[in-house]
C-alpha cells in the first residue's frame, strides 16, 4: 500500500495506527469512557476488575476513564502548542532569512539568548510568575519552543533564498511576499514536516513532565503526566497505577517517532560505512 507516493515500512504503519487510535480516543472520549472524568467509583487503588479494567486511582476514580479523557487534554495541549510554535517560528524564521540583515541580527541574537537557558528552567521561571492556567502553559511553551522552529526555518529559508530560482524571481521584480509564499514556502515545507513530528513529541513529553511536577495541567482535568503524579506513591506498594498513563505517553511518542523515522529515511542516503570493501 502506498501513502503520498511512498511505501511505508511495517514500523511506519504501526506508528500511523497508534496515532490514529489515540486521536480517535481523544476526540470521542465522551462516548468511549465508561465513567465520567472526575467521577468517584470506588476506593483508593482498587485492583483491576470487570467494572474497572485498570482499577481505580488515588481517590477512587476509574483509571481507564481518566486515561481516555487524559488523551484529549495531553495530546490536545501538545498539538495546539506545536501548531502555534510552528506558526510563530516559521513566520519569524522566514522574516530573518529574507527580511535583511538588521531584522535577522535582532531575531537571531534574541533566540540565541533564549536558547542558552534550558527550556524547562525558563518555563519554570515564567510559570512561577504567571501561575499555571492552560492558556499560560500553551503560550509559554509555544513561544519558547518556537525558538527551535525559528532556527530551522531560518536555516532552510536561507538556503532556499540563495537558490537561483529565487534570484530569478527577484530579477523579475517580484515582491517579498510573493517570493516567500510561492518560491520559498512550498520548498521549505517537506523538511519541516518531520520536524513537526519531533517538536510535537518534545512538547508532548514536556507538558507531561510539567504536569508531573504539578506545574502543568491542573486538576480536575485528567492528563497523563498529572495522573502519574497522583498515583506515584502506589508504586511503593507494588501497584502499577502510575505506569498506565506513563505507558500511554510512551506509546504515543514511539508512534510519532516511528513515522518521523520513516519520513526522514525517505531522503537519506547510505553513507560510506556501508560501501563494498
Amino acid at each position: 500500500m502506498k501513502l503520498f507516493g511512498y511505501k511505508p515500512p511495517f514500523t511506519a504503519w504501526v506508528g500511523l495506527a497508534i496515532i490514529a487510535i489515540f486521536i480517535f480516543v481523544a476526540i470521542f472520549a465522551d462516548f468511549i469512557a465508561p465513567y465520567g472524568e472526575a467521577e468517584s467509583v470506588g476506593q483508593t487503588w482498587d485492583d483491576p476488575s470487570f467494572a474497572n479494567w485498570l482499577g481505580t486511582d488515588n481517590i477512587g476514580r476509574d483509571l481507564l476513564s481518566r486515561l481516555i479523557y487524559g488523551a484529549r487534554m495531553t495530546i490536545g495541549v501538545a498539538l495546539v502548542t506545536t501548531i502555534l510554535s510552528f506558526f510563530i517560528g516559521i513566520t519569524t524564521g522566514f522574516m530573518a532569512a529574507v527580511g535583511g540583515p538588521v531584522i535577522d541580527q535582532i531575531l537571531s541574537r534574541l533566540v540565541d539568548v533564549i536558547l542558552s537557558i534550558p527550556l524547562l528552567i525558563f518555563a519554570l521561571i515564567i510559570l512561577s510568575v504567571f501561575g499555571s492556567s492552560i492558556t499560560t502553559l500553551v503560550l509559554t511553551l509555544a513561544i519558547l519552543d518556537s525558538t527551535r522552529v525559528f532556527r530551522l526555518a531560518r536555516a532552510v529559508a536561507t538556503n532556499l533564498a540563495v537558490m537561483e530560482y529565487v534570484e530569478a524571481a527577484r530579477l523579475r521584480g517580484e515582491g517579498l511576499w510573493w517570493i516567500m509564499r510561492r518560491e520559498i514556502l512550498p520548498n521549505a515545507l517537506p523538511p519541516m514536516i518531520s520536524e513537526f513530528g519531533l517538536r510535537f513529541c518534545f512538547n508532548f513529553l514536556f507538558v507531561a513532565s510539567l504536569s508531573f511536577l504539578g506545574l502543568g495541567i491542573q486538576p480536575p482535568f485528567a492528563d497523563w503526566g498529572g495522573m502519574v503524579r497522583d498515583n506515584g506513591k502506589a508504586i511503593s506498594f507494588g501497584i502499577p497505577a502510575p505506569l498506565w498513563p506513563a505507558i500511554a505517553i510512551a506509546t504515543m511518542t514511539v508512534g510519532v517517532n516511528l513515522v518521523v523515522d520513516w519520513i526522514l529515511s525517505i531522503n537519506s542516503r547510505p553513507s560510506g560505512a556501508s560501501a563494498e570493501m
Binding site: E164, Y165, A168, L171, R172, G173, R182, E183, P186, N187
Partner: peptide, 28 residues
C-alpha cells in the same frame, strides 16, 4: 540597485544560469 529599476527595465535584460537544476523551482 535592481530595486530601483522599473518592471519594463527589468523585463528587457534576462539571465540564464549555469546550473539549470537550481534555477528552476522544483515545486512549480
Amino acid at each position: 540597485d535592481l530595486k530601483g529599476r522599473t518592471r519594463d527595465e527589468l523585463r528587457k535584460v534576462q539571465l540564464i544560469y549555469q546550473q539549470p537544476d537550481v534555477a528552476l523551482n522544483p515545486r512549480q
